[in-house]
Amino acid sequence: MGQIVNFGREMIRINSEKNRIEYSTNGGNSWHSRDSSPNAGKFYSLCVYGNELLACTSKGVYYSKNGGNNWHSRFIGSTAGEFEEITVQGNELLAQTSKGLYYSKNGGISWHRR
C-alpha cells in the first residue's frame, strides 16, 4: 500500500513496489528516491510526528529526522505484534498491529494495548 504525507515543503511517499521512500518538491509531478534501507525492513505506513517521520515497517517502528534520508529504530519489540499502520491522534500515536490497537504517549518508545 502506497502512502503520501506532507513533510515541510516536500511530499513523502512509500513506493511499495520498490520498497523505498520517495519525495517530491513539485506537488507530485515527479518523484525521486530517498531511501531503500534494507535495515528498516518493508515500509507499511508513514506519519509526521513533530519534526520526525515515523514509519511502521516489517521490523517495527522507525524514525527519521531528515525527511527519510536515514532511518533509526524506535521500537522493535514483539510484545505489540507486527506494526501495520501508524497515525497521530492528538498527543498520542496510534498503531494498528497484528495484536490489535496500541497507543504511545512517548513518541513510539513504548506501546500499550488500547
Rank of each mutant, 00 (worst) to 15 (best):
V5Q: 09
K42T: 14
S37K: 01
V61M: 14
R113H: 14
R9I: 10
H72M: 06
N51T: 07
G50R: 13
S98H: 03
N70F: 12
N91M: 00
T57W: 03
H112R: 11
K99D: 05
F43T: 00
R113W: 07
V48R: 14
G108H: 09
F7E: 05
I12R: 00
Y23E: 07
E52K: 15
F75K: 05
F7W: 15
E10S: 15
G90H: 02
N106W: 04
S58C: 07
Y63E: 05
G108A: 07
N26D: 15
D35T: 08
L93E: 13
S64F: 07
E22F: 14
V5E: 13
N6L: 13
L53P: 02
G28E: 11
R13T: 00
R34A: 03
A55Y: 10
N29L: 14
R114F: 11
Q3R: 06
M11F: 01
I12M: 01
A40M: 09
W71T: 01
G108V: 05
R9M: 09
S64C: 08
I21Q: 06
K59H: 03
K59E: 00
G107E: 00
S36P: 02
H32V: 13
A40I: 06
G68Y: 13
N106Q: 10
G28P: 12
Y102N: 01
Q89A: 10
G2R: 04
N39E: 14
E52M: 06
R9H: 12
I21V: 15
V5I: 15
N15G: 07
S98G: 05
L101R: 13
S16M: 10
S37Q: 04
R13P: 02
K105Y: 01
N51Q: 14
L46V: 09
G27C: 13
W111Q: 11
L53Q: 00
E22Y: 02
G108S: 11
W71H: 05
K18L: 15
I86H: 11
P38F: 05
G50M: 08
G77T: 10
Q89D: 13
S64I: 06
W71Q: 04
Y103V: 07
S98K: 11
R113P: 11
I21C: 10
R74S: 08
T79L: 05
Q3E: 15
F75W: 12
R34H: 01
E10Q: 12
K18R: 12
S98M: 04
N106S: 12
L94P: 02
A95F: 09
I21D: 03
T57R: 06
W31T: 08
Y63K: 13
I4V: 15
E52H: 06
L46F: 11
N26G: 03
G50Q: 09
K18Q: 10
Y103F: 12
S30V: 14
N106T: 12
